[in-house]
Design a protein around this nucleic acid. Structure first.
Lengths: 213, 213
DNA sequence: GTCTATAGGCAGATAGAC
DNA sequence: GTCTATCTGCCTATAGAC
């Protein structure tokens, strides 16, 4: 590989700077909300002058929009495991594992998403109406097939999906409350494992997808 | 009852004005977050001049704190049904009913609470450490008794409580997303009923508190 | 108690040197 | 591309007439 040409090196630096800014922005938006976050604070966290942020992201809103989009991508990827499964025990179990891993690794992203939706999705309403709607309908089809095959009880697929989202994202969005109730300590590896298994056990047994214990 | 004395009439008007402001504030804080909310907008929603808000609530932060406290009270009252029950099917079932009713009737309150916790509970951290911790420990004792009596499976009570909070509050906090996925229409009476029954069925069956269907 | 007008401060965005 | 200095506007809070 030849030495990076000036244009390549520029592009690389641009990507690096953008990633740095996006990471800082995700943290600040999660902790302060869109209205409470300031470009100055994001710049301080990123270790850059404030004007640089405006160079890469013209407005605060565009920066925010990019943060939300990035989260949405990660969010959707967790869905892959759902479809590759033979039945609900494997598919829903793996989906819970994947969503819990995201809650643990990307709690700030989850919080920004939650905040955006709670405020009426002013920035990503189009995503809700297109991509998320399509994704949801696809998963509903899969669940209905499992039900018709007798692999699980006849549960309303839509409310089951809401339950999966709610239980897994709760560990990110309400992480501060959970840590406080844990003696102001982060959950240990074992506690995360227990949380995951607890959700899987109750839901899978609850929908009749586990051999009756 | 004698005609209201000046001091009584003053007090009544104070209460009415405060209630009006608190109601408007809850709505605006829920929709815009603390940082995004403005005293001007709250005043407009309440139909009062902005200066009046500062007369009754000296600072924006004090007004916000009162809103969060009010929600917390409602929240705790739903717990009463938990203790008056004989077993998990009745107790947890009634608790789910009560929490779902709050999600439906006070969605803004739930959102303000969620937002506060997501941002690290800067205003109500003391409540988390005292009242909520005590409440949680009390309910854990009840659940552990039900388990020891063989009325339900040996589930970790703490994670069960998180699941109850997550699933019920999700219908308030993510109400906008749920409505969008419902064709941009609010849930009907029947849909709320279905949601409630779905949660109760899955969780109660999942913890082994239902006669095996 | 109520309201208008305004002070004081801070945040988003940009101009322009380097 | 980077950064300092600054403009502009909005928001909290208050002074002071009524």
């Amino acid at each position: 590989m030849p030495k990076a040409s000036p244009s390549n090196s520029k592009k690389l630096r641009r990507q690096e700077a953008e990633a740095l800014i996006l990471s800082a922005a995700e943290k600040v938006f999660a902790e302060a909300g869109f209205g409470g976050a300031t470009m100055q604070l994001i710049a301080d966290v990123a270790g850059l002058p404030k004007a640089n942020l405006h160079y890469y992201f013209p407005t605060k809103e565009l920066l925010y929009r990019q943060v939300v989009q990035n989260i949405f991508e990660i969010w959707l990827q967790a869905a892959d495991v759902f479809d590759q499964a033979e039945g609900p025990e494997e598919g829903i179990g793996a989906y819970i594992d994947a969503k819990m891993e995201i809650s643990r690794r990307h709690p700030n992203g989850s919080k920004v998403w939650a905040s955006e939706v709670m405020h009426g999705a002013p920035v990503i309403q189009d995503y809700l109406e297109t991509t998320l709607t399509d994704w949801t309908n696809g998963r509903i089809t899969v669940i209905e097939r499992w039900i018709s095959e007798g692999r699980m009880a006849p549960i309303d697929p839509r409310h089951l999906l809401y339950m999966l989202w709610a239980t897994t994202q709760h560990y990110a969005d309400f992480g501060h409350q959970i840590e406080t109730l844990n003696g102001s300590a982060p959950l240990s590896d074992a506690q995360w494992e227990a949380a995951k298994n607890n959700i899987k056990t109750i839901i899978l047994r609850g929908i009749g997808a586990l051999p009756t214990a």
